[in-house]
Nucleic acid binder design. Structure first.
Lengths: 126, 126
DNA sequence: TCTTGACTTGGATTGCGTCCATCGTAGGAT
DNA sequence: ATCCTACGATGGACGCAATCCAAGTCAAGA
């Protein structure tokens, strides 16, 4: 555990936090001016491998990193501005996929993404 | 409707088809040797806007295009080889998100992705 | 035939992520 | 205290996916 990794872990803390790698880097630089992007990527990769952080690809653009990995949850994404909210899962999401529909796959996790417009984007009409 | 767009639409046809833009381009070139990648991107974007094709970002790498947009469905993705299968939805996926958990969002669609190992990858051990 | 506008083309460019050679540094051995 | 060693950090180069843009092509209508 180096100071660089500690800073990355500290930056990723809180509720409804879904930063891109560049955003993590920008915030890490405020505390450790010489930290490089490669190091941020390494640290993020390690946190993901440890299960401390969840990696999201909600828009086909930059991946986002969600520190709320302790408790499973789904995501609510604004189609216009990209805002993301965590929402609690209702029931067992795995129940939606009965054995006979699994094509022999060993299913280990489920990702649910709700898409729509957030209140402020919905207000600004279509 | 130009010949280029028709070819792109024809390439994207069938069950469990989830091609990347480059794969679509490669197949389109077989029928129309001079078609450019930019044109393929344009045609795909139009098909997505028309609701004829669904765009997927399952791995944070190249987007994939799914022509099975007529009937809603979910996806089963192999974490190792990337194989994708369509699976029918069970019940109303929207039911998992009660009004009081929507943070004021206007939710219009839900994406469900099951991740795990396909039979052949599971066979080859961890 | 000429004009117009929509579409296509291909190369340049951007955004995101990874790779790699090199450097720095902490901890152990002497 | 000094030297060795190894792991992590650095930053620049690279690769892939996607988009942008200026120029070219084509078809339909005046």
């Amino acid at each position: 555990m180096t100071s660089q990794r500690r800073v990355v872990a500290e930056v990723l803390d809180g509720e409804h936090v879904h930063l891109t790698a560049d955003e993590v880097h920008a915030r890490a630089v405020e505390r450790l001016p010489e930290i490089s992007r490669a190091t941020v990527y390494n640290a993020l990769g390690e946190l993901v491998a440890l299960g401390e952080v969840v990696e999201l690809s909600t828009d086909g653009r930059a991946k986002r990193y969600d520190p709320n990995a302790r408790h499973p949850h789904h995501h609510l994404v604004c189609s216009r501005c990209g805002t993301i909210r965590d929402v609690p899962p209702a029931g067992d999401p795995m129940a939606g996929l009965p054995e006979e529909e699994r094509f022999g796959f060993t299913v280990s996790k489920v990702e649910v993404t709700y898409r729509g417009l957030c209140p402020s984007c919905a207000g600004r009409a279509a």
